[in-house]
Measured scan of single mutants.
Amino acid sequence: EVPFKVVAQFPYKSDYEDDLNFEKDQEIIVTSVEDAEWYFGEYQDSNGDVIEGIFPKSFVAVQG
């Protein structure tokens, strides 16, 4: 069931425009499960802007 919160276990950096880049310990709200390997989610950056994109499930852990 979406949405749910995950926390980055590792930093994720990608050159693909659709990917969500983040640092370790970033909290991310997952709004869609793309497939067995990928989530789609969002978070607010330090400027208060909402950043969204896809990212690999293996880089995050589900909270709770």
Rank of each mutant, 00 (worst) to 15 (best):
I51V: 14
N21T: 09
S32W: 09
Q63C: 13
K13I: 11
K24I: 08
V33A: 06
A8N: 00
L20Y: 01
D19K: 14
E42C: 15
G48F: 05
F40V: 06
V2Y: 07
V6P: 01
F4A: 01
E1N: 12
K13L: 08
F55M: 00
S46G: 10
F22C: 04
D49W: 09
S46K: 13
G53M: 03
Q63Y: 13
E17N: 09
Y39V: 04
N47W: 07
I28W: 03
D35G: 14
D19S: 14
S14I: 03
P11A: 14
W38A: 03
A36G: 13
N47V: 06
F10T: 06
F55G: 01
Y16Q: 13
D19E: 14
Y12M: 03
E17Y: 10
E37K: 09
E17K: 14
P11V: 06
D45I: 07
Y43S: 01
L20S: 00
D35F: 08
K5G: 04
K5F: 08
K5N: 06
L20V: 00
V7T: 09
G41I: 03
P3A: 05
N47E: 07
V50Y: 08
V7H: 05
V7C: 08
V60D: 02
S58H: 10
V30I: 03
K5A: 06
Q9G: 05
V60M: 01
V33N: 09
D45A: 10
V30N: 03
E52Q: 15
V7M: 06
Q9V: 14
V2W: 05
D35P: 04
Y43W: 05
E34P: 15
I28F: 03
E37F: 14
Q26K: 04
E34D: 09
E27Y: 06
A36V: 08
E1M: 13
P3K: 06
Q63S: 12
F4G: 03
S46N: 09
K13T: 09
V62E: 09
P11T: 11
P11N: 08
S46A: 13
E37L: 10
Y43H: 00
F59D: 04
E52D: 09
Y12C: 06
F55I: 02
V50K: 14
G41L: 04
S14F: 02
V6M: 01
S58A: 11
V7W: 09
N47R: 08
A61F: 11
I54R: 15
F22S: 00
F59N: 06
V33L: 09
D19N: 14
V62N: 08
I28R: 00
Q26A: 03
E23F: 06
N21G: 05
V2N: 04
K24R: 09
Q9H: 09
V60A: 03
K13E: 07
E1I: 13
K5Q: 06
N21L: 04
V2R: 05
S32E: 08
F59L: 13
V33K: 05
E37Y: 14
D45G: 07
I28G: 00
S32K: 15
D18G: 15
D45C: 09
G41D: 00
Q44A: 10
G41K: 00
E1C: 15
G64L: 10
L20Q: 03
N47I: 06
V6I: 01
F10A: 10
F22V: 01
G64S: 11
I29F: 10
D45V: 08
K24G: 05
D19M: 15
D15A: 11
V7G: 01
F22E: 00
E17L: 12
G64D: 12
Q44R: 13
W38N: 10
E23R: 06
V30Y: 03
S32D: 05
G41P: 03
K5Y: 10
G41S: 02
Q44T: 14
P3V: 05
S32Y: 09
F55E: 01
S32G: 12
P56T: 03
D15L: 11
P11Y: 05
Y12P: 00
F55H: 02
Q63I: 15
